[in-house]
């Protein structure tokens, strides 16, 4: 991440103890596990909850960075900057693939600051906050991309025993 990300994190982000944010997330996850038991249901409810945070997160991001994606290719640096602003870390790898009308972007981080040190009793990816916010923001911008739909999921998570946390976005163009 370049100087813009470093400035955004250093001077513009209002901060809180990272451990408390992690355990707060764990508290929500444990509540959902107690309520629904099934990993798939817990994941889909987590995603539903955090998509509601999309508007606040996006507005705070825009106010802090004054930068938004102007093309689909631009979603790579834009979300890297966003991740830096919200966690203080950048992704280790970002890949974009095109298959006809389908575009896939995969964001990978090995030492994920969101789930670091946490464990959950059932195999559910818990860093879904990023995927939920991505999906909410890009759903609002479908027309800008001339896209039919957008979807983003956490496909790997370290709390499940994966080697990294991975977020995969799928945009289908018209």
């Amino acid at each position: 991440m370049g100087i813009k990300g470093a400035i955004a994190w250093r001077f513009l982000a209002k901060k809180m103890n990272a451990m408390e944010i992690r355990y707060s997330l764990l508290g929500i996850v444990e509540y959902l596990i107690q309520t629904y038991k099934e990993p798939e249901k817990v994941y889909s409810e987590l995603k539903k909850i955090f998509k509601r945070a999309g508007e606040i997160v996006y507005l705070k991001y825009l106010q802090a960075t004054r930068r938004f994606a102007r093309s689909i290719e631009d979603l790579i640096p834009t979300y890297n900057l966003g991740f830096k602003l919200f966690t203080g870390r950048s992704f280790d790898d970002i890949r974009m693939e095109r298959e006809g009308k389908d575009i896939y972007i995969t964001y990978t981080i090995y030492d994920c600051p969101i789930c670091k040190g946490l464990s959950v009793p059932i195999p559910v990816p818990i860093c879904v906050f990023f995927a939920s916010v991505f999906e909410w923001i890009e759903e609002q911008r479908l027309q800008d991309w001339n896209a039919e739909f957008v979807k983003c999921d956490e496909t790997k998570c370290r709390v499940k025993g994966d080697e990294c946390c991975e977020f995969r976005a799928h945009i289908r163009l018209r």
Partner: peptide, 21 residues
Amino acid sequence: KVEKMNLISYTSGNLAFVMYL
């Protein structure tokens, strides 16, 4: 001395969870 993350992750997540509940 503490590791930090953006406060908005906490506040926006909490508000979203309240609305959900």
